[in-house]
Each structure stands twice: as C-alpha cells, then as structure tokens.
C-alpha cells in the first residue's frame, strides 16, 4: 500500500467512524415517513400539508439531529472537525441539487400551464411514468450523496427507492405509501447501525473521555 493510499484510508476511517452511527439514516427515514403521513393527511383533511411539510420537517429534524450527534456520537468517539475539502464537494452537490429541484418545479409549472391546452408528448410520457422518473431521480441523488460522502449504503437506499417506485408504478401503489415503506426500511437500517455503533463504542467511564491525560 502506498503512502498516499494509507493517508486516504486513514481519512476514510476517520470520516466513516463519525457517520456510522445510523443517526443520519434514522432522520432521513423519519423525514420520508413524516412526508408520507403529511400527504395522507393532505388527502383526508384537504389542507396543504404536502407543500409545507418539507420546510417544517427541516426546522424540526435538523436541530434534533445536531443534538443527537452531540449527545450520542461525540461522547463515544470524540470530536473531530474535518477540513473544508469535503464540505466544498458537498456544497457543490447541494447547490447542484437545488438547481435540479428548481428545474423540477419549473417543469411542474409547465405541466400546470399546459394542463388546460393539452400537453406535448414528452410531458405526457413524464406524467405516465412519473413514479419511475421519481425513483430514477432518487437513485441518482442517492448515488451522488453516496459518492460525495463515501457512504456506500446510500447507493443501496437509492436502488431500493428506484425498485419500490418502479414496482409502485406497475402495481399502482400510491406514492405516499411507498414513502412510508422506504422511510421504514431506512429507519430500520439506521437503528441497526446505531445499536452496532453503541456496542462498538461504549461510553467511556467518567467524564474524562475528551480531556488530554
């Protein structure tokens, strides 16, 4: 193994040990479930839950995730600040996703605008295979995050999402139920990771864990 490879391995080990606690998975799963429930409530109560749910969830879930990281992960493996290299890569990815999201909203705008006067054939195809496109988009986004963050299980989540949405298209399963299923699988996977993490890194005795001896 070359020196360069050894350094990469060490960097990867440091990064992975900080993100193998399953907390990210649990909160992403919760997000998917809450979003699905919001859509179901939307149908029952005819209130715009679906539209406001993502913003509400980010405002609630993000501070809880940060606090959980501070209370569960940091006391067990200590504190580390990674350099800006990874953050820049992640920022570029998030910016790309934001632009892609804006593009999707614009596309929906086109859908709505052309709804009254008849849609072009390609929009019809997008509509007809909407679930498959969403699944494919999720798989691509999952893979991008997996590549950027170096977390291989995100490839699996992306593939699972694609498989579920594709089968949902052919079996006519409503979108919100698929979200509930995906969220449950991701939470279960996160819970397993969290248990493994807690077993692998028990709390150090006393409060001297992060103090230089």
């Amino acid at each position: 193994m070359t020196k360069q490879n050894t350094l990469r391995e060490i960097e990867k080990k440091a990064y992975m040990s900080y993100h193998q606690d399953g907390l990210l998975d649990i909160f992403v799963g919760l997000y998917a479930i809450a979003f699905g429930l919001g859509m179901i409530a939307d149908k029952i109560l005819e209130f715009g839950f679906g539209a406001i749910m993502p913003a509400i969830l980010i405002a609630i879930v993000l501070p809880i995730w940060i606090e959980a990281k501070r209370k569960i992960t940091m006391p067990r493996i200590g504190f580390v600040k990674f350099g800006t290299r990874g953050s820049n890569k992640l920022f570029a990815l998030l910016l790309g996703l934001a632009v892609a999201g804006l593009g999707v909203f614009m596309l929906f705008g086109v859908f709505l605008a052309t709804g009254q006067i008849g849609r072009p054939w390609w929009i019809e195809i997008l509509f007809q295979y909407g679930m498959i496109w969403i699944g494919l988009g999720s798989a691509v986004i999952g893979s991008l995050f997996a590549y950027t963050m170096g977390l291989k299980r995100l490839y699996g989540y992306g593939l699972l999402t694609f498989a579920l949405f594709a089968s949902g298209h052919f079996l006519s399963i409503p979108f919100e139920y698929l979200l509930l299923a995906i969220g449950s699988v991701i939470i279960a996977s996160g819970a397993v990771l969290l248990v493994q993490f807690i077993r692998r890194y028990p709390l150090p005795k006393g409060a001297q864990g992060n103090v230089a001896q």
């Binding site: 050894t6 060490i10 200590g78 600040k81 350099g83 890194y201 992060n210 001896q213």
Partner: peptide, 23 residues
Amino acid sequence: MHLYVVESADFQFLQHQTGMTPG
C-alpha cells in the same frame, strides 16, 4: 498522520483512531 487528514480532533477521537493507550 491522523491529525494530517483532519482540521482538528480531540484526544478521545485520536485514541479511537490510533488504538493507543491514553498514556
């Protein structure tokens, strides 16, 4: 090496990464 790949870390994190005893 372990400090080279990060910006900063605490004693506990380094101990986990290196597998060394505190002393």
